[in-house]
Design a protein around this nucleic acid. Sequence first.
DNA 1: TGTACATCAGTGAACGCGCGTTCACTGATGTAC
DNA 2: TGTACATCAGTGAACGCGCGTTCACTGATGTAC
Lengths: 202, 202
Amino acid sequence: MAVEQSYHHGNLHAALLTAAEAELEDRGLEGFSLRGVARRAGVSHAAPAHHFGDVNGLLTALAAVSFERFKAAMESTAAAAPPDPISQLVAIGLGYIDYATGHPHLFGLQFASERPDRNDPRLARHAAASLVTLQERVDALVRKGGRKSDAADDLAPKFWAITHGLATLFAMRRSPAFPTTDPEERRMRFERILRSVADDTP
Amino acid sequence: MAVEQSYHHGNLHAALLTAAEAELEDRGLEGFSLRGVARRAGVSHAAPAHHFGDVNGLLTALAAVSFERFKAAMESTAAAAPPDPISQLVAIGLGYIDYATGHPHLFGLQFASERPDRNDPRLARHAAASLVTLQERVDALVRKGGRKSDAADDLAPKFWAITHGLATLFAMRRSPAFPTTDPEERRMRFERILRSVADDTP
DNA sequence: TGTACATCAGTGAACGCGCGTTCACTGATGTAC
DNA sequence: TGTACATCAGTGAACGCGCGTTCACTGATGTAC
């Protein structure tokens, strides 16, 4: 850092988000504290208030950023996959699971915490946008046809639920019954399961 | 209570678990405190230590109890359902979702918290037993036959994941994209989706 | 180019709070004889 | 049946801790003229 000796930080907003992410992934939501974030950023613990109001404001901003990156991660997985609608949808699911595995506490903040303010426009926007990513692939698949019409209505919730279930249960090791297996094998199993849901033409 | 004026409580162990459940469902895991539990039980805040050691001991015991009731809830839903293997499995899934909906924070404690001691034998036993309930129905369904063999291997994780995904995303209202609908309609949708996973004979 | 002044960003001390845990204690219960 | 004593269950006061928030402040930056 070239600005180290300066009184003003210059980019504290971004630095605090980075520190908050590290704090969250290290200590979990229960151990997360504003003072811990400030410590990591090397700044007085009163400084964050200037940028985020209070601790929930910071968590809200962090959740929004995480949804943004979550969406980008899914899109990039899909970009590397074959263009047919089924492979595209499966790729979105795998990207979803990979993100949850790689950032378990950010993922938990996005979906399982009551601390972010869900009415915050920025958070709401990014949360909705990340789901559009999945919905678009479902729509493309349904448009292709060859699918029972009532099953088509259920495809989005069904595919989303199985992806979310795999992400939380298996990727986050919260599965007492299924031993952690080789990561490559696990990924193949995820892919097989997701494909079986995406590809249920009669 | 007939023992109200007595110095000794008589059944404080059970009373503390009841109070802990109320505290958890009222204030969530983040707001849960040992002192709050003692307050609810009308007892000194040093008393719980006698029965559970520390706060995590209490949460561990509560998680074990919750797994026990979770299993019982699934079994009773299944008992009221038709005896064919598919209906039985679907009923287990619906019982799973109902429990999560009715006791969101207990459910979160069971599956998404790092505070209970997962190595506690009693907790581990009840957690494993509750999944056996699901596995048995899957086994019965596979034994009946008429199913592709590799799909049979994936059926348990697949069914479990979709059930868990529906429970966490929809039942707990963490679904930004799907508006909360009429409970009866929602239940029918859950049933339709679960059945489509259970009944994928080629 | 230089000066005055407003605005902004971060400081550091202070506050009050609720928490979990410890510990000497006391009241109640059960058991031995 | 009665007494002495050990054990058990719950008390209440005390502790130290880290937390979020507030607030008067100071150092740095930007702008007007």
